[in-house]
Design a protein around this nucleic acid. Structure first.
Length: 390
DNA sequence: GGGAGACCTAGTAA
DNA sequence: ATTACTAGGTCTC
């Protein structure tokens, strides 16, 4: 279970007027001290003293075919949202703490736990959910041109791309490099806990995402002690780089939403810790770059299986990365990133339960190389087990 | 350009 | 009980 994490101590000057959160200071343990020494303990957490909100579920006019929570939130776009009950997902958008669930008819409903303004919360939510974009319409196009997509779409309807806050997205994917989901989540939880506490739902604590200034008060060593490993310096360096932007780092990030994908990727890549994969994630998940393709090993497998088989067996080099991205874009067009999202989800082990077995394993190759060697544990021993490099 | 290693860490497979 | 390897990569020679 998650537990409250102590957070590093901010230097004396409070950059922003944090409401009501008291921080106990303590001296920095640059010392030997054991592994666990945490720098400071946050005082007991009480929710902000905002006006009490009568919690009630409010229906949104969004069908499950447009938004499936289970296919959108736990699939690697964000590590900030938690499954707080079997059918409910909870997260923070700006300063709003919100839960989502499906109603009986499948439509999505929301509940505001904490917010300075319910009206703003709703519009922030709609923006976050990217509701201006019709999933079913774009999928019709994909399905028409790709029979495999059409089949998968039957089972994976509502796999949507969110429109996250750019800074939040950037920091999250900085944590993601060469890492696994469990640990990424822990790291993101740590970063989140630096922000203002908003409330607790289903045993999880929720926080506003910390500001750039707040992040800048955390040292590389603090992050390392929190288990970030070499990514600690990425975060420090990126925060610093953002702060040095004339006009402000947040504004700089926001301005990328108006730019072309290549410019966006180039700009992001100047930040330490941001390579092609991470840049594409940020571009797709927060900067309106709907045809950005985050090419990782999974996507590489998909691509070499269905899109550019002539490259099967090759090693994934940066150049081939862009070749893969190009292949996706020429097949799926300006929303290629959304198409890729569905194909990616279909590869996740967690989806095996809802996909028929025919999708589990790699389709039998004419090459008998990949003989089914799974004798023990059923057909799905590991579907992703094409060896990475041959 | 492209290839090789190093880099943090927790979990799992030999 | 060690060792090797992997996991939504990036950086530096």
């Amino acid at each position: 279970m998650k537990r409250r994490r102590p957070i590093p101590q901010p230097p004396s000057t409070p950059p922003t007027p944090t409401l009501l959160k008291t921080l106990v200071s303590n001296s920095k343990p640059t010392s030997n001290s054991s592994k666990k020494p945490m720098i400071l303990i946050k005082t007991p957490q009480t929710p902000p003293p905002t006006t009490p909100i009568s919690p009630k579920w409010v229906p949104l006019n969004i069908a499950k075919s447009e938004l499936s929570l289970a296919l959108t939130f736990p699939t690697g776009q964000t590590f900030r949202w938690k499954q707080t009950t079997p059918l409910q997902y909870t997260g923070v958008i700006g300063s709003h703490l919100i839960s989502l669930k499906h109603l009986q008819n499948g439509d999505v409903a929301y509940l505001i736990h904490q917010s300075p303004s319910e009206e703003n919360a709703r519009s922030a939510l709609l923006d976050f959910l990217n509701v201006g974009i019709s999933l079913s319409e774009m999928w019709e196009v994909f399905k028409a041109s790709d029979s495999r997509f059409a089949e998968l779409a039957q089972y994976l309807g509502g796999a949507r791309v969110l429109r996250q806050d750019p800074l939040e997205c950037l920091i999250q994917f900085l944590c993601s490099s060469n890492n696994n989901i469990g640990r990424i989540t822990k790291m993101v939880d740590f970063v989140s806990s630096l922000g203002n506490y908003l409330g607790s739902v289903g045993g999880f604590d929720f926080y506003e995402f910390p500001s750039l200034d707040r992040l800048s008060m955390v040292s590389e060593e603090d992050f390392r002690e929190a288990g970030f490993g070499y990514r600690a310096k990425y975060i420090i360096g990126t925060v610093k780089a953002l702060q040095s932007k004339s006009g402000g780092g947040i504004e700089w990030l926001a301005s990328l939403r108006e730019m072309d994908l290549q410019e966006v990727v180039d700009a992001l890549s100047t930040l330490p810790g941001v390579g092609p994969k991470v840049a594409a994630c940020i571009a797709l998940f927060s900067l309106d770059q709907h045809h950005a393709i985050p090419v990782d090993t999974h996507v590489w497998q998909i691509a070499t299986r269905y899109l550019i088989p002539e490259l099967a067996g090759a090693r994934l080099t940066p150049k081939l990365c862009s070749r893969v991205a190009d292949a996706f874009v020429s097949k799926y067009g300006k929303y290629a990133g959304w198409a890729q999202t569905l194909l990616f989800i279909a590869e996740l082990p967690s989806q095996k339960t809802i996909l028929p077995p025919k999708f589990w394993a790699i389709e039998e190759n004419k090459d008998t190389n990949i003989k089914a060697s799974t004798t023990g544990n059923g057909p799905c021993g590991s579907s992703l087990s094409i060896t990475k490099s041959c």
